[in-house]
């Protein structure tokens, strides 16, 4: 990995988006909004920053990726398929009976899925455990964990944050998809998270704030975080929920529903245009 240019990574993000729209439309359900907001991150991780071998998913030296916001499984599956973990054709089996592409990721079911997630608030603890095992064994893999912003309302994240600092898990790098929307609406109208960077700093983490749709900023953030030798790092990604499809952007209604037929045509048209 690593041979993709910035513009190719940007294109890849849109390819992943197109898969998300097609998969969730075929499934008539799923969570497109938060999938679209994290497309650039998945592109950067799986096609640039992560050390991994799709042909050998359990390769010991691989960097680990834990999708704490498990409902955006479609964007993870799209990245895994494009990277070569399983055939791209299989993406359209999402959420169907007998499929390896469960509604939320399941460890052991699909190559490349490290942990079972989907119940929010748990992924950072799992990632901390994986990072701790690496530290105990003197391995240099990195553990990446993607968190939703809404899920930070769950206390277990902060238990994990305290723990990771206590154990000096510098190989743990978390990303917060700060799209500011949860099912109910604006996160700040539900139970507010601001000032979010200050919260993480108070927990002893390195904090990097980026435009989550800037491939270049994401690459730099991962590089910088990887140089930490003491504390874990969180990359707060300011993003737009539904990014890349005009009528889905900043629309909480698309948190957990697929496109209708006409919406689907419009979304696919826009993404294909972007890919041209």
């Amino acid at each position: 990995m690593g041979e993709y240019t910035v513009s190719e990574l940007e294109k890849m993000a849109d390819r992943l988006r197109l898969h998300v729209i097609e998969m969730t439309y075929a499934a008539s359900s799923g969570h497109p909004g938060g999938s679209l907001s994290s497309a650039e991150l998945l592109s950067v991780l799986y096609f640039h920053s992560m050390r991994h071998k799709p042909s050998d998913p359990s390769w010991d030296g691989r960097d680990r990726f834990i999708l704490s916001k498990g409902h955006v499984a479609p964007i993870l599956y799209a990245a895994l398929a494009e990277a070569g973990y399983f055939p791209v054709d299989e993406l359209l089996t999402l959420r169907k009976i007998g499929s390896r592409l469960q509604g939320h990721p399941v460890r052991g079911k699909l190559p490349g899925v490290e942990m079972s997630t989907g119940s929010l608030g748990q992924g950072l603890s799992m990632a901390a455990g994986i990072a701790l095992a690496g530290k105990m064994d003197g391995k240099d893999y990195r553990t990446f964990c993607l968190l939703g912003d809404g899920e930070l309302q769950s206390g277990q994240n902060w238990e994990a944050a305290m723990f990771a600092r206590q154990y000096g898990l510098s190989g743990l790098i978390a990303f917060v998809d700060r799209n500011r929307l949860q099912i109910t609406g604006n996160t700040e109208d539900a139970v507010g998270l601001d000032p979010l960077p200050e919260k993480w700093r108070a927990f002893g983490w390195n904090v990097i704030i980026v435009d989550g749709h800037s491939v270049r900023e994401l690459i730099e953030a991962v590089d910088k975080a990887s140089r930490s030798r003491k504390n874990p790092t969180v990359v707060i990604m300011n993003t737009v929920k539904g990014k890349g499809v005009s009528f889905m952007e900043n629309n909480a209604g698309f948190h957990g529903r697929a496109c209708s037929e006409s919406e689907y045509r419009k979304a696919v048209g826009e993404l294909k245009e972007a890919l041209r």
């Binding site: 799992m126 901390a128 455990g129 994990a160």
Partner: peptide, 10 residues
């Protein structure tokens, strides 16, 4: 339990 699971997965 989350930490334990991550350790066990490793």
């Amino acid at each position: 339990i989350g930490i334990a699971s991550g350790l066990a997965a490793s």
